[in-house]
Each structure stands twice: as structure tokens, then as C-alpha cells.
Amino acid sequence: MDAQSIITAAKLIGAGLAMIGALGGGIGIGLSANGAVQGIARNPDVAGPIQTNMILGIAFAEAVAIYCLVVALLILFVVK
């Protein structure tokens, strides 16, 4: 096993580990959808604004997962 393949293996493992952080984003998106659906079930008239705000909240929760993705991509494609 030469050094280059060890480095490649470490990069792949590191990128995989970095994506663990997407867990938080997933939980956040699930919670916000949960809350929005409950709100719409109680008061269907305000479904429109609730959906808009839910999508905004999802975008913020998703941003954290996207940071992890950026780190993973950096490890895969930039670190030599």
C-alpha cells in the first residue's frame, strides 16, 4: 500500500465523516415540517403564509447541512 492510496482513503473517510453534520439539518427540516403541518391542520386558512415561512426555515436549517457538504467537497476535490 503506497502513500497515495492511504491519502485517498483518508480523504474519502474524512468526507464521509464530515457529512455526519447533515444529521442536524435533517432533524431541523423534519421539525419545521412537523410544526407547519400541525399549524395548517388547526387553521387551514393560513396555509399560504405558513408554507412560505416553513420553506424559509427549511432553507436556514438546510444551510447547516450545506456547510458540511462544502467541507466534504473541499476535502474531496481541493485538498491534495
Partner: peptide
Amino acid sequence: ISFSFRLFGNLFAGSV
């Protein structure tokens, strides 16, 4: 940082 990396990450991940 959060402004720039959110936009960059979403779109870069999208094209990949």
C-alpha cells in the same frame, strides 16, 4: 461567512 457559503454551497452542490 454564512451569507456567502450558504449561496455558494447550495449552488455548487446543485451543479455537482
